[in-house]
Computed example of a mutant assay.
Amino acid sequence: MPLVSTGELVTAARAGNRGIAAFNVITLEHAEAIATGAERAGASAILQISENAVKFHGGDPGAVTAAAAAVARASSAPLSLHLDHVESAALLKAAPGAGFSSVMFDASKLPYAENLAATAEAVRWGHDHGIWVEAELGAVGGKDGEPSLDAHTPGVRTDPAEAVVYVTETGVDALAVAVGSSHAMTRRTATLDHTLIAALRDAVPVPLVLHGSSGVPDEEIRRAVASGMVKINVGTALNTAFTGAVRAHLAAHPTTVDPRKYLVPAREAMAGTVADFLRVVGSATT
């Protein structure tokens, strides 16, 4: 079916008091697994391509985006394309031409005032070009070798009063918040601050986004969605499933040289993980 816009999927999830899962795409197999998992679950989903993934593919988003878009259009599930964790102004401005309907502009490493100013400019440009814009306030941590951060470390969690000002001043369409999760976790041990999630939901008028959901147990995700979290980002869990399946196949068949032999179980493992997360966030119908 035709690509759906991320804004449309997030708005529908929020109106239905459920979550919408967004999965990171690195390879063609990731995109195929996300589409297959969404079809099995009878759910919509977001295919995310990060700035780091673009760098992995040589710095040009064209090829990996075209592949993901082709997979999405061939799927019976409603799927959108989202450009994630963008720090480069050049990549931001390439988003509309590459086929993205949305961008997560990431100025979270900057001091608050600089983050706000840079994000406001990105939002103005994005809205002028039909792009739905997500931004981040707080320190989720764990990305690109950063340490995992405790939700109770001073200055780490997103402050609701600061979030109100930030959303008002920037005009963002969605806000990624720091409430206890961390990027790149391979064990699902994170505990979220559900009181803070509810306070942020009540404070700001835009949907909330949870980054680092791979490290969050199922019940914590369900509670987060019930407390007001809408967009649930998943990346490392797919890679864990992919790599585990590859390792298992090669251990059992050490003479294998045809990559299709181990990519098939790797893709299947990711598809199962996608379907599981879609059921957890409440968007699955099967």
Rank of each mutant, 00 (worst) to 15 (best):
A15S: 14
E136M: 05
D144P: 10
A199M: 08
A248R: 14
V167N: 03
N233T: 05
G155A: 05
L92V: 13
Q48P: 01
T255D: 15
V123N: 06
F105C: 08
P111S: 05
S214D: 06
V177H: 03
M229S: 08
H183K: 14
R18I: 10
G212H: 07
A22S: 11
V177F: 08
T11D: 14
A35V: 03
E134T: 02
A69S: 14
I34F: 00
S88C: 12
I34R: 00
N17C: 06
K109R: 14
E114W: 04
A184D: 15
W125N: 13
G145V: 07
R201S: 10
V25W: 00
R124E: 13
E32D: 02
H152M: 09
A237Q: 03
S80F: 02
V281R: 02
P259C: 04
V280Y: 00
P2N: 08
A122T: 04
S108T: 09
E121R: 14
D128T: 10
R222N: 04
V10F: 03
G212C: 11
G99C: 11
S80C: 11
E87L: 13
L149W: 10
I34T: 00
A237P: 03
A43Q: 05
L79V: 06
G228T: 12
L3G: 09
A224N: 10
A241M: 12
A22K: 00
L3E: 07
V86G: 10
A31W: 00
D150H: 13
M270E: 05
L9G: 01
Y166W: 04
S283Y: 01
A70N: 10
V54H: 10
G244M: 11
P217L: 02
A70P: 02
G62D: 13
V234Q: 00
K109Y: 09
A13M: 10
P154K: 07
G19W: 05
K261E: 15
M270H: 09
A245D: 08
V179C: 13
E268N: 13
R247E: 08
G145T: 05
L110S: 10
A45F: 02
G58W: 07
V86E: 11
G244N: 12
E220F: 01
I46H: 00
D202A: 15
I131F: 06
G37V: 01
H211K: 08
A13L: 12
M185Q: 15
T153H: 07
T170N: 06
V164K: 13
H57W: 15
G142T: 04
T243F: 12
R14P: 07
A176E: 11
V71L: 07
L79Y: 04
L116I: 01
S80R: 04
A161D: 14
R247W: 02
D106N: 12
R124S: 15
L210T: 05
G228Y: 06
R279M: 02
V164G: 00
A174K: 09
S75T: 04
G244C: 09
S50H: 07
I49A: 01
A271D: 05
